[in-house]
Nucleic acid binder design. Structure first.
Lengths: 142, 142
DNA sequence: TATTGTTATACTCTATAACTATA
DNA sequence: TATAGTTATAGAGTATAACAATA
């Protein structure tokens, strides 16, 4: 990371991401049984449409057994459903139920309250930096 | 987050941070017994100097029992030492051992390889965005 | 009585290994 | 034989509650 001109940049970035992830996991929408993991997977399915189990696992940066557990939780909640792959009997498609789409819209305002509150303490410039950083963070993941 | 002009911005940012954190946790320096949590706490102590247990827990966004466990691991590895607080017998100062300082310097190049590799796929502009985003992410945590 | 830190305990998240079904 | 997914199991990581020591 030569442009950083900071020998501790990578270390500091890793630490910041870990600490942010702890903060994100800690906040639960108490009256809605949705963990941070489930919200992330739900959002992924909402943005990208149905995926196979392996695709969703890769997107979420976990192994298949981990995403299977998350999927099971969401299926029990009626938010997600499995369906057969059109051409390959081994694969399983995972997609949102109509109920989930409503739930996601209904929860968006409250979920965003997290960032709204934080953003109150940011300048316009800082908010712009954050907005432009998101695609770079996504690129870092892939 | 009005400047985002993207109703899914908060959701996408949360998801990206969770997925990045999974990626960070997954990479272990196999021949050095250091988890991502320990590296983060070690870096914090290196950057900020000795802290009390509660201060370190707050910085790492965990509760005291969690940081106690992490501290115990690092003490066993000889990287960290507890010492009495100068004026308050209830508090415990946590600081790096001289051995840890050497270890941190020795590991920096390899730890940074993570980001170096990722940064190869970023443009100069993207690297600059990332560099400027780090202080904003830190501000988001606090 | 309040605060700091640790211990005891339980729950969540995650991975590896083994298994089943399909290609 | 190889791949997709699940099940079984174990190991981190984390929190709440209870406890000990000090203020």
């Amino acid at each position: 990371m030569s442009p950083a001109a900071d020998p501790q940049f990578a270390s500091t970035l890793r630490s910041a991401i870990l600490r942010l992830s702890r903060q994100i996991r800690a906040q639960r929408l108490v009256d809605v049984e949705l963990t941070a993991n489930q919200m992330s997977a739900l959002g992924a399915l909402a943005r990208h449409g149905p995926m196979t189990v392996t695709e969703l696992a890769a997107y979420e940066q976990v192994k298949p057994p981990s995403i299977t557990r998350t999927i099971n939780c969401m299926v029990e909640s009626g938010l997600v459903e499995r369906s057969p792959h059109p051409t390959d009997g081994r694969q399983v498609m995972v997609g949102l139920t109509p109920h989930a789409e409503k739930t996601i819209v209904a929860l968006r305002a409250r979920r965003d309250a997290w960032l709204e509150e934080k953003a109150d303490h940011l300048s316009a410039t800082e908010r712009d930096v954050l907005r432009r950083a998101l695609p770079v963070l996504e690129k870092l993941i892939g």
